[in-house]
């Protein structure tokens, strides 16, 4: 059913088709879907929102973040089927997010993969985890408020004790983030909660361990300023990349500025995200949708829903009409017609 039309993202350890992942764009739906006066006003990001800045060009693919994330969140190691005969579960090697994996480093590969961060005949890394959307679809769709957005930090949190496992969040997330544990009769939904669920965790474990500063934690405003600083500098110029968190005491990683894409990803697209991405290859090659509008699709569904059902006025009026008609017609029938 799915037809692969664009670049491939492969799980690092996977070879060939086994870990192949394809990214697909379909037309300019964004514009097409938009319009009509029914749209709900998009949400603003909280002033003190926190998030991550992932710089693909700094990432060396060591996957320390992946390991740290597993440890902090106490999640099981994962061994994809092709490796099961020689890897007995000691070496955690997920190729994608899953019910046991909240973050994963994937690799984009093209041609002979000669040069890092080049789209043609090159390769690039991509870290996947929840983007903590400003106007999150998962929060909008959940029937039991099991996904909530922290009003101060903007972190999107999952409440397992509320969740009914309908997987609407899985379906609707534009970044394919929430996962369900299909192999467990009592499975749960899992997703990155920016480590707010981990006791005594000062900030994101993945950012804490990143040796190069590729994954950086901070206030979103600061992260955006840092991203803009990098984008403003000329390629080759020296830059002191903060490591861990912005404003932390880690020694910065001093390295030259690479050739970036025109802008960082996550400022406005789909309503904006609190986890931002910088890369040398086009973002859609890394699985981030580019042909999407500058607002969350949730503004449309909620707009339709609330236009039709505001204060239940419309349904009440319709019901009134129906009751009147049914009552009037009922007086014209004998009772036994009414069944």
């Amino acid at each position: 059913m799915a037809i692969n039309r664009r670049a491939f993202l492969k799980g690092m350890a996977a070879d060939g088709a086994a870990g192949a992942a394809a990214v697909v764009t379909i037309g300019a739906t964004g514009e097409a879907v938009a319009g009509g006066g029914f749209q709900r006003t998009p949400f603003e990001m909280p002033a003190d929102a926190v998030g991550l800045l992932y710089d693909s060009t700094l990432c060396i693919g060591c996957r320390a973040c992946q390991a740290a994330c597993k440890e902090a969140n106490g999640m099981a190691a994962e061994v994809p089927t092709p490796y099961q005969d020689w890897n007995e579960g000691l070496w955690d090697s997920p190729t994608d997010l899953s019910g046991d994996t909240l973050t994963v480093i994937q690799v984009y590969q093209d041609g002979n993969m000669a040069v890092k961060d080049r789209a043609e005949d090159g390769y690039a890394f991509m870290k996947r985890q929840c983007m903590h959307c400003t106007d999150a679809s998962c929060v909008s769709v959940c029937p039991v408020t099991a996904m909530t957005k922290d009003p101060v930090t903007g972190v999107v949190i999952h409440h397992e004790d509320r969740c009914i496992g309908c997987r609407y969040c899985v379906l609707s997330c534009p970044f394919g983030v929430p996962r369900y544990q299909y192999d467990d009769p009592f499975g749960a939904i899992t997703k990155c909660q920016l480590c707010t669920n981990v006791p005594d965790q000062e900030y994101s474990a993945c950012a804490m361990v990143c040796p190069t500063g590729a994954t950086l934690y901070g206030r979103v405003d600061d992260l955006k300023a840092e991203a803009r600083l990098r984008l403003a500098k000329d390629p080759g110029a020296e830059h002191a990349y903060p490591r861990g968190r912005i404003g932390g005491d880690n020694e910065p990683n001093v390295a030259p500025i690479p050739v970036y894409q025109d802008d960082f990803y996550g400022d406005n697209i789909l309503g904006g995200t609190q986890c931002l991405t910088l890369a040398g290859v086009p973002y859609d090659r890394l699985g981030l949708p580019l042909e999407a509008p500058d607002f969350s699709y949730a503004t449309l569904t909620e707009g339709i829903q609330h236009t039709l059902y505001r204060y239940m006025i419309l349904p009440a009026v319709v019901l009134g009409g129906l009751v009147t008609l049914a009552w009037r017609n009922s007086r014209r029938h004998k009772p036994e017609d009414w069944d």
């Binding site: 909008s140 769709v141 959940c142 029937p143 039991v144 408020t145 099991a146 004790d161 509320r162 969740c163 009914i164 496992g165 309908c166 997987r167 609407y168 369900y180 544990q181 299909y182 009592f186 499975g187 749960a188 939904i189 949730a298 569904t301 909620e302 829903q305 609330h306």
Partner: peptide, 22 residues
């Protein structure tokens, strides 16, 4: 439903999400 044993949560007013079409 992946967590059917909690399905009744849809009936609990304090968990109501008025934005949820589902």
């Amino acid at each position: 439903l992946g967590r059917y044993w909690q399905g009744y949560n849809m009936m609990l007013p304090w968990l109501t999400n008025v934005n949820s079409v589902m």
